[in-house]
Design a protein around this nucleic acid. Sequence first.
DNA 1: TTAGGGTTAG
Length: 690
Amino acid sequence: MTFRTLTKHLHKDSTTLAHVFQTYAQSKQLSKGKQLHAQLITYGYPSSTYLTNHLLSMYAKCGQLGYAHKLFDEMPQRNLVSWTAMISGFSQNSEFSKAITTFCLMWGFGESPNQFAFSSVIQACSLLKSVRTGKQIHCLAVKVGFSHELFVGSNLADMYSKCGSVVEACMVFEEMPSKDEVSWNSMIDGYAKNGYYEEALVAFRKMLIEDVEIDQYLLCSALCACGSFKACNFGRCLHAFVVKLGFEAHVSVSNALTDMYCKLGGMDSGSRLLEIDFGGANVISYTSLIDGYVESDQIEKALTVFVKFKRQGIEPNEFTFSSLIKACANHAALEQGSQFHALVLKYKLDQDPFVSSTIVDMYGKCGLLDHSIQAFKMIFEANEYAWNSLMGVFAHHGLGHEAIDVFNRMVDQNLKPNAVTFINLLNACSHSGLLKEGLSYFISMENVYGIKPRSEHYSCVIDLLGRAGRLEEAEIFIKKMPFEPNAYAWCSFLAACRKYGDKERGKLAAESLKSVDPENSGAHVLLSNIYAKEQQWEDVRSVRKMMKDENVKKLPGYSWIDVDNKVHVFGAEDWCHPHKKEIDLKLDNLLGKIIEAGYVPDIESIPLDLDDDMKVKVLHRHSERMAIAYALIRLPIGKPIIVKKNIRVCVDCHSAIKLISKVEGRKIILRDNSRYHHFIDGSCSCKDFW
DNA sequence: TTAGGGTTAG
């Protein structure tokens, strides 16, 4: 049947025509809808508010907001449905402010909104994260008696949850006279997304007693809470429940399951889920898996997943790249990181706030400060993530004044510093010996910026005082702090005690560290270092015995470098490398040269009862020196050497590398687990403060 | 006789 005959037949039957438009709207057949609309105009079909409402709704649902708006503007007579269709049209097409304005206009025109208009406009507030407007509309809904309506109540609970106001969401939810699966999910998901994982799971259990039909939304929200709460048993039960209800092959549920297992640390379960289940895996499925591998430090596996899903024709997105680049940053894998940066540009994702700040961080962590600053400059509208990254990079490189400058510029731009800003700022002060400034920022956090310091901030202050040699103040600070000091806090204090030779406080710190983290080898190692410095070999042996008895393994030190796009790993003991002989020769040659240049081995730092010659040999085979020797053999003259090390560089290596940079005329960049050191012509950027 | 709600990743 042609449109012409159709319109002839339908001449007086606008109900059927409306139904046709409704079908086109649901199946998003815009072109057919448009043709029929054109036919009606051509044949002079009489328009009516009823039919125009249908047309308006169809255009809005097909994403043609312009047409919808034009129809709405030109309507000779609008009714409640016209207004509501326009409000929801704006809301569905992400024009949230316009949805709210239209809702207000509706009042002005004397049209009183019903439950449909309320639920649409509350959704707009929710997506706009505007709790202030949402609250005003909530008040109106109470006034006109729609606040307890099922859809309005669910929307209100969702709006408050999405705006972070869980208490209000809970109040709305509790007052709802009847609840369905959507209302329950608004609340459960609200709890989960705001960090109230346990409450989310309690609500889920409570819901199971009620007569609620379980759907994929509820399962996704509960799985998300399980993963974040590390609720292994609950998670496994939920998995069984998913299978029992037949939702295992549902893509969003399957993704939520993958993500949950990744968060629980069960990477094998996560990847098995993807392999066995279904062909519907999408970019979220793979990105969850990549992220799981990145979080569990398995970068190679993360890269394998990336290659696999690219082969399957699934395109990566901003989530994928931010996860992969983060992995490169953690491993200081510059070559790989640069390649991802190039891909980000190709996919035009370089302005994504997460991706762009990860790139800044990646170059910084790979030692290329200039690249990092340049990457920051390329961001059109840097948000707090980007500023925090830049500040973190300066902190990592020991450039305290530059980090403070970044902080000041950030505040000048009216960006609100957050908890991470202060961790970076305090670290920057700590690594540059800016004690006065650091303490002042710590106080201003709460007094000026209203951010309550967390245990991480207290740990930073302990580090700040400790590095500056203010051990007594650090000890008092620890005793007064409102948190139990964590392993990081005690490690910082212990390292300071060792650096400044405070044996008594060192013992206290080591004992405390052992009690909060019994498997932490640092406590034992640093304690034995303190004894070694005092030449108390009996005590050194007793600490070693204790480690053996308690089965505490010392984290072996190793270093790695990129040469010819390949990562070469060097360990202090039992290492083998195809160029071992050459490296040994180069090391001997270097030792001679640096001794000539004034190198005095710090044999005190070797916690072993050996003769002095042996101690020098042990020192000179530390992993970073082998990596540097290999790089000097293999890398072209003039190319900076970038070495990464898993534990903090020792005092002796630090002075040796300074001299190596001088005698070899090479720039050497060393990243240890604490910060960056740039060695040029006999001196280090940390000014011997690390 | 039209118009309305909640999922899976930083």
